[in-house]
Each structure stands twice: as structure tokens, then as C-alpha cells.
């Protein structure tokens, strides 16, 4: 599976709340970030957790969020950033 996103692409994390083992932190859901890099291509851990194959392997991206985007008015310092590693199926283009 070739990566759908490239470094510099703006993405939005799906505002999604599936049951079971989930690897996308709640605080990033629905938030807009920027792809820094493809971190890995890996079988889906949300499937592996149940003994399934997790195939096809999924690109995992390092996605950077501003503290302002994550926490709004409550941000401690708007220009600070958080970077999380997120699977492709959790990301949508956010042009």
C-alpha cells in the first residue's frame, strides 16, 4: 500500500469512536495537523490486538498539531506542538 499523504500535507483526524482497541489518542480526533513524515508501514495494530493479520499493512504518519488546534483557548502556548503517530485510515485530506 503506497502512502496516500506526503510530508507537508494538511490532514484531519477522523472524528470517529469505534469500539475496541484504538491507537488514535482521543485528543487528536477531529483535529487538523500536518504530515511530517511516513513513520512506518505496519500491519494494523487495531486488528493485531484481536489475533487477526492486520493486513494489508498501513502507512503510519508522524502528524504535527499546534497546541492551539488541540486545546483552543485553553492552550498553554499556542505555538508549541505535539506530534503523534497515526495510521492512514484515521486521516482525511484537509486542504
Amino acid at each position: 500500500m503506497s502512502p496516500r499523504f506526503r510530508p507537508g500535507d494538511a490532514v484531519r483526524v477522523r472524528a470517529w469512536d469505534p469500539p475496541g482497541h484504538v491507537r488514535t489518542p482521543f485528543y487528536t480526533r477531529g483535529r487538523r495537523g500536518v504530515v511530517l513524515a511516513v513513520a512506518a508501514v505496519h500491519p494494523n495494530p487495531e486488528e493485531l490486538a484481536y489475533g487477526r493479520s492486520g493486513l494489508p499493512a498501513q502507512p503510519v504518519y508522524r502528524v504535527a498539531f499546534s497546541q492551539a488546534e488541540l486545546w483552543g483557548e485553553a492552550a498553554e502556548r499556542t505555538s508549541d506542538r505535539t506530534v503523534a503517530d497515526l495510521q492512514e485510515r484515521w486521516l482525511e485530506p484537509a486542504p
Binding site: 491507537r23 512506518a40 503510519v60 504535527a64 506542538r81 506530534v83 503523534a84 497515526l86
Partner: peptide, 12 residues
């Protein structure tokens, strides 16, 4: 100085 927090949520 900008603070960057790295949340190791995946395979790294």
C-alpha cells in the same frame, strides 16, 4: 524556545 511533545502512539 518551542516545545514539541512526541506521543509514541504507534510502532516507533
Amino acid at each position: 524556545v518551542q516545545v514539541v511533545v512526541h506521543d509514541a502512539t504507534a510502532e516507533l
